[in-house]
Design a protein around this nucleic acid. Structure first.
Lengths: 134, 134
DNA sequence: CTTGACCCTGTAGTTGCTATAGGGTGCATA
DNA sequence: TATGCACCCTATAGCAACTACAGGGTCAAG
């Protein structure tokens, strides 16, 4: 399987696959006589794993850790659980931060009366004299 | 006012201030005889604006746009409103994405029975044969 | 034998900073 | 006067996680 097909199968860009190889996340595949990368089922499985974990918001470092853990099949699952739980906590934090931010921005927008800039509450609230209530 | 004081006043790192100047977000201040940057009230106001907007999650490009709009005080406020509303929509999208992701990850973690890796549902779910239900 | 789709390497760009190296300035103290 | 220290200067490289070139090579079809 050459890189383009692997890319299509996993919905990954060709450049991203080469990037994963360069940073050691995806093992170097064999090469054809014409120096084309030649991927097999193991590569497909590993790349799928990477993409799925990335879709779930794991960082590349976390993915690397998960891959290492999953390669050592004798190890307990609890380490994997720990990584996943840490990630979940990060997500919760991000959601909370975004909600606080959303509330503030929404308030600002609610005050906009579509007048001239000089009366704009948004601009005003962003200014240095905005000591009110945050 | 030299850069360090401006940094402390606005809770910004010195390097960040120089960075904002380099990308044209903050105008170049005058210099002292010793070539130190010398800031006035206008710089403080502008940097405060930038920081506040950044805290609200606006990108630097959006901040640039807001600054341009606020500089032209004759213009209608509605352009500002548009930028802010677009940003709010982006935040809502991000929150929705994170919640979907959180739900999925939470489900995965709930299935972990702390056994061996070979039985780990998290690892399994990340694999390529995970066609079930996403 | 040429066209076109694909592949290769290497490098630079993206966003929003942060950190380092290698210096100069300004003021107080020994 | 020297020297120490906090502060300032420029320029460059690094971070995540890719993405986008530039400038080539390969391979099958027409």
């Amino acid at each position: 399987m050459q890189i383009g097909e692997l890319a299509r199968t996993t919905a990954t860009k060709v450049e991203t696959i080469r990037f994963y190889e360069k940073i050691g996340l995806l093992p170097e595949p064999g090469r054809t006589s014409g120096n084309y990368r030649d991927y097999g089922a193991a590569h497909l499985a590993r790349l799928s794993f990477i993409r799925r974990a990335r879709d779930l918001g794991f960082t590349l470092d976390q993915v690397r850790e998960l891959l290492t853990l999953s390669d050592d099949s004798s190890r307990s699952c609890s380490a994997v659980d720990t990584v996943a739980r840490a990630h979940l906590a990060q997500i919760d934090q991000k959601i909370a931060d975004l909600r606080a931010l959303r509330r503030e921005l929404d308030e600002l927008i609610g005050q906009c009366s579509q007048g001239a800039i000089s009366d704009c509450r948004i601009i005003e609230a962003l200014g240095p004299s905005a000591q009110n209530g945050h």
